[in-house]
Structures are given as structure tokens and as C-alpha cells.
């Protein structure tokens, strides 16, 4: 699980990019608290072979990235 809450753009995407490069995960969960981060991570994930499922609760978003 990557906790990127409160981090400004583009740090959350950089964190996801690093994790994908480091461990080539088949699944990855990311916690963010802004729609900008949701959009940016989703765009990055979709073009790097991941499907993304997003759940919102109390202004926070959990993104579940699953390798296609």
C-alpha cells in the first residue's frame, strides 16, 4: 500500500512509478486525497498495463491497480 495522502502533484505518481519499476507488482493499492492524483495515477496505470478500480470514502480515494 502506498500512502500518498497530502502529497502534491506529481509525487504520488512518482511513488507509483518507482514501485512499479522496483517490484513489478501484479497488484498495488494507493491511497490519495485529491481527484487530481486519482486522474494522474489512473492515466499512468492504464498506460502501463494496469486496470484501476477506485473507491472513495470521506474525501479519500483508494486506487487498486491490477495488472491486466
Amino acid at each position: 500500500m502506498i500512502d500518498a495522502r497530502g502529497l502534491s502533484c506529481p509525487m504520488p505518481v512518482v511513488m507509483v512509478q518507482k514501485e512499479v519499476k522496483k517490484s513489478d507488482p501484479s497488484e498495488l493499492e494507493v491511497l490519495v486525497d485529491s481527484m487530481v492524483c486519482v486522474e494522474n495515477i489512473t492515466r499512468f496505470a492504464n498506460t502501463h498495463g494496469f486496470a484501476v478500480e477506485t473507491k472513495e470514502a470521506g474525501g479519500e480515494y483508494t486506487l487498486r491497480l491490477v495488472k491486466r
Binding site: R5, G6, L7, S8, P10, M11, V14
Partner: peptide, 11 residues
């Protein structure tokens, strides 16, 4: 940014 630059979290 690649080296880990961050101005830390906002709340």
C-alpha cells in the same frame, strides 16, 4: 523529484 524531493504532506 526522481531522487525523492518532497515538500512533505499537507493536511
Amino acid at each position: 523529484l526522481k531522487k525523492g524531493f518532497s515538500l512533505k504532506r499537507s493536511y
